[in-house]
Computed example of a mutant assay.
Amino acid sequence: MVRVITIFSVLFLSIAPAAATVINGEVLRQNGNGEFKLLDTSKPFSVGHDNFNTDHLYAFDEDQNILLSEPLRVDIGGDRGIIPQGKVVASHYVFFDSLAGIHEGYVDFDAPILGIAALPATLDATDFLANTSVNYISTDLRGLEPGDYVWVDPKDPFRLWVFWAGSSPGDYIRVFTERSPGAMM
């Protein structure tokens, strides 16, 4: 009986969804009392214009391990702003939807960061990678404004840094990493 349960457990675990590929994060400096929150996309929620209104730094995984059938334009990173056709990428969404103030923090991923979509047009063009249970609202207000900064840690390509002057409706980016070892194809 123990052997049957063990075999069943191994088979079940091999077909169960893998762990998320956003690993961790932290809010280091801000005017409020926020912390990092990893959102669970197995439960539907909406993200967009002022529906969170907290000082938390949020992240969630979108589509994982997608073979790009055409080149993908990004605002930050890539080879001259392009992730090439034939590359396997994982997509993640990172945002502050705060009331006001300066926010600084980081998000860690389980694979190196390839590029970042940070402007409304680039976010719109990459929405085909957002196949989750998430409802994206007020998409015309996404992206970063002048004075907002985001960068990949030069010593740790798995870490994304943000320095955003948050206010209504918030700051939103999409991060592309290499193939995620923690997600299934």
Rank of each mutant, 00 (worst) to 15 (best):
A20I: 00
V107M: 05
G78L: 02
W164D: 07
E62M: 14
D127P: 00
M1S: 10
A111R: 07
I113W: 11
G77T: 07
G105R: 09
G32R: 15
D55M: 05
F96K: 05
F128W: 15
V162G: 14
F45E: 04
N131S: 15
A121N: 13
I102G: 04
G32M: 11
A183T: 04
P84K: 14
A100F: 15
P146E: 13
D108Q: 12
D156N: 15
M184W: 12
D140S: 14
W164S: 03
V88S: 02
S180F: 12
D55I: 03
V94H: 09
P17F: 06
G101T: 05
T122F: 02
A100V: 14
I82F: 06
L141C: 00
L39E: 08
L72A: 00
V74L: 01
T6C: 09
Y93H: 05
A16E: 01
D40A: 03
N31L: 06
I66N: 04
I7S: 12
R179I: 06
N65V: 02
L141N: 04
L67F: 09
T126P: 00
F176M: 08
R73M: 04
V27R: 14
Q85T: 13
L28V: 12
D40I: 05
I102H: 14
D79Y: 01
L141V: 02
D55P: 03
V94K: 07
D171S: 10
A130Y: 08
